[in-house]
Design a binder for these strands. Structure first.
Lengths: 150, 150
DNA sequence: GTTGCTGCAAATCCTTTGCAAGGTT
DNA sequence: AACCTTGCAAAGGATTTGCAGCAAC
C-alpha cells in the first residue's frame, strides 16, 4: 500500500475536524498502522527519525482528539496507544510483558457502568477500564525456558 | 490527635513489612489522613515543607506497597492517591474537578471481572477500573454562578 | 496569500537516584 | 554498632512550548 492510499480512516478523521492532512501526518498514520498491536509515542518517533519528536506528540494528540486512537496506560502508568478499530465504545486489555493491546467489547460491562452511574454520587462523566494480561505469545515465551530446564 | 497516636494503621502496615517507623513517615501518614478526600504527591509535599520532596515520594511508594494507599489517575493521567479504607478489593470514583476520591465496592463489577478473565485471551494479571465524576459539591459550585447571572 | 504545520532546541513537569550525614533499632 | 532513612542536588524521562521557516488549502 502506498502512502497515499493508506490510513484513509485515520486521515479522514482529522480532515473532518478541519485540520490539514500533511505528509508528516500521513507518515505518522502509516507508522501507527504498522504497529497495530499498540505503540508508545517513543516507538512511533523512532520509526520516523526524519519526523521531529514534538510533531509526533502533536499528531498523536490530534488523532486522539479525533477519537481514532486510544491512549491507555500500563500498570506503572507508562502511556500506550492503540488504534480504535470499531467506532463503538470499547475497552482494552494490555499485555504487561510486550505491550500488545487488544480491544474488546462486553455488553455486561456497559450495563454495569450504566447501573453504577446511578449509584455513585455525583454526575458520572467518564470511566477507565483496562485489563492487564500476559498474552498467549508471552505466556509461551516464558513457558519455554522452564521446559528447557527439565 | 497527637502525632504519636495518629495513623496507627498506616504506620503498622510498614512496620509489619520490616520498615522503620520514623518521625518523617509519621508526618507523611498524618498529612495523608488530613487529606482523606485524596491527594497528590505535590500536595503532601507542600503540606510538609520541612520534609524533602524525594522523601515524600519514597514514603508514598512505601505505603502503596504496603497496600494502605491506592494510586489512581485522573483522565489526563495525573496521579492521585487515596487511603484505602476497607482492606478488601475495591475501586474508586474521582471528581475531575476537585480530585476528591471516593471508594466503592460492587459485587457486580467483581463478577464481571471474573467472567472476563475467562473470556479474554491470555492470563489476566490485574485490572484498572476508575470512574470519573463531578462530585455533588462541585456540581453545586458550578450551578451557583449560573443562577447568579439570572 | 493566509493560516496552519514542522523541526529544533529549550523549557517543564514529575519522579528517581547518588551520596554523605543523621536517626532507629 | 549496624543498617536504614533523609535531604539536597543532580539526573532522568516524558511531554510541551517558542519560534522562524515551510507547506497546505
Amino acid at each position: 500500500m502506498t502512502i497515499d492510499q493508506a490510513s484513509s480512516t485515520l486521515l479522514d478523521s482529522i480532515r473532518d475536524l478541519g485540520y490539514r492532512v500533511t505528509g508528516t501526518r500521513r507518515q505518522v498514520a502509516l507508522a501507527m498502522e504498522r504497529r497495530s498491536e499498540g505503540f508508545s509515542a517513543e516507538e512511533i518517533s523512532s520509526d520516523l527519525p526524519q519526523v521531529g519528536r514534538a510533531t509526533v506528540y502533536r499528531a498523536l494528540k490530534l488523532f486522539q482528539n479525533a477519537g481514532v486512537i486510544c491512549k491507555l496506560a500500563l500498570p506503572n502508568g507508562a502511556p500506550r496507544y492503540a488504534i480504535a478499530t470499531g467506532g463503538r465504545h470499547h475497552h482494552h486489555s494490555v499485555c504487561v510483558r510486550c505491550g500488545t493491546v487488544t480491544e474488546f467489547r462486553d455488553s455486561t460491562v456497559e450495563r454495569v457502568v450504566r447501573t453504577l452511574s446511578t449509584e455513585i454520587e455525583g454526575e458520572m462523566v467518564g470511566h477507565r477500564i483496562e485489563f492487564f494480561v500476559t498474552c498467549p505469545a508471552c505466556l509461551s515465551a516464558v513457558a519455554l525456558p522452564k521446559s528447557q530446564i527439565n
